[in-house]
Simulated assay, not measured.
Amino acid sequence: MNKSELCINLWFCFDKEAGFVDAIAGRGYFLNGSDEQKTAALKILASSDFQNAVWQPIPDRYQTKIVSSVKSESESFSGVVHSSDIDILGLDLFEEVFKQIESVNQIYCPIKNTGAVKVPDEPLYVITPIEYSNGMIKAITG
C-alpha cells in the first residue's frame, strides 16, 4: 500500500519577451498512489492551481547581470533570474516557497500537536513555467 506523501507543485513566472523570472510560487498536496500517479496528479493541478498559489518575489540573493551590447557595460539586478537558469538553480531557488508551504499546511492541519508538516529533503515535485505576455498569463504544460 502506498502511503500519503507531501508532494509539491512549483511555478515560476517569466516574461515571454525578455525571459526573466521575477516571481515563484508553490503548493503542497498530500497524495496517495505510485510516484507516476502522484506526478500525473501534480501535472493536472499545475495547469490551473497557480492562480490560487501565494506568489513570492525572487529572493534578493539571486542576481542577474545584463550586458549592454551597445556600450559593452554590465549592470546587476537583484531578485531576478533568467528562465534558462531555473534548472541550474534547482530547488534552492524555492527555499522560501517551501517554508510557506510548511506554514500553510501546519495552519490547516486537522489534528493539532501531531508534529510539524515538513517538506521532504527530496520531495516529489513538478515545476511549471507560467508565461506572461501581453497582459495574459498561462501555464506552459506539455
Rank of each mutant, 00 (worst) to 15 (best):
N2F: 13
K3P: 10
E5H: 05
L6P: 04
N9V: 04
F12H: 14
F12K: 03
C13G: 06
C13I: 03
C13Y: 01
C13R: 14
A18G: 03
A18M: 09
A18Y: 12
G19F: 03
F20S: 06
F20P: 01
V21Y: 05
D22C: 06
D22S: 15
A23T: 10
A25R: 00
A25Q: 04
R27Y: 00
R27Q: 14
R27G: 05
R27M: 15
G28Q: 05
Y29G: 04
F30I: 10
F30A: 02
F30M: 07
L31M: 12
G33M: 11
G33V: 13
S34C: 07
D35K: 15
D35E: 15
E36R: 14
K38H: 12
K38D: 13
T39Q: 14
A40R: 10
A40Y: 02
A41G: 00
L42K: 06
L42R: 05
A46I: 00
A46P: 00
F50G: 05
F50N: 03
Q51H: 09
N52D: 15
N52Q: 15
A53H: 08
V54D: 12
W55Y: 12
Q56T: 00
P57V: 14
P57S: 15
D60S: 14
R61E: 15
R61K: 15
Y62Q: 09
Q63L: 05
T64Q: 05
T64A: 06
I66W: 06
I66E: 11
S68M: 11
S69A: 09
V70M: 13
S72Q: 14
S74I: 02
F77E: 08
S78N: 11
V80E: 09
V81K: 09
S83C: 14
S83W: 01
S84A: 14
D85C: 05
D85A: 12
D87G: 01
D87V: 11
I88F: 09
I88A: 07
L89W: 08
L89A: 07
L89P: 00
L89G: 04
L91H: 01
L91K: 10
D92W: 01
D92F: 02
E95T: 10
E96G: 02
V97L: 03
V97W: 03
V97F: 05
F98C: 11
K99S: 10
K99D: 13
K99N: 09
K99I: 01
Q100V: 02
E102R: 01
V104R: 08
Q106H: 01
Q106S: 13
Q106A: 12
Q106L: 04
C109I: 06
C109R: 09
P110S: 11
P110I: 04
I111E: 10
K112L: 11
T114Y: 00
T114K: 07
A116L: 14
K118E: 12
V119G: 01
V119N: 06
D121L: 07
E122Y: 03
P123H: 08
I127C: 05
T128E: 01
P129S: 12
I130K: 07
I130Y: 12
E131P: 03
E131D: 08
Y132C: 10
Y132E: 15
I137L: 08
I137Y: 02
A139K: 08
I140G: 06
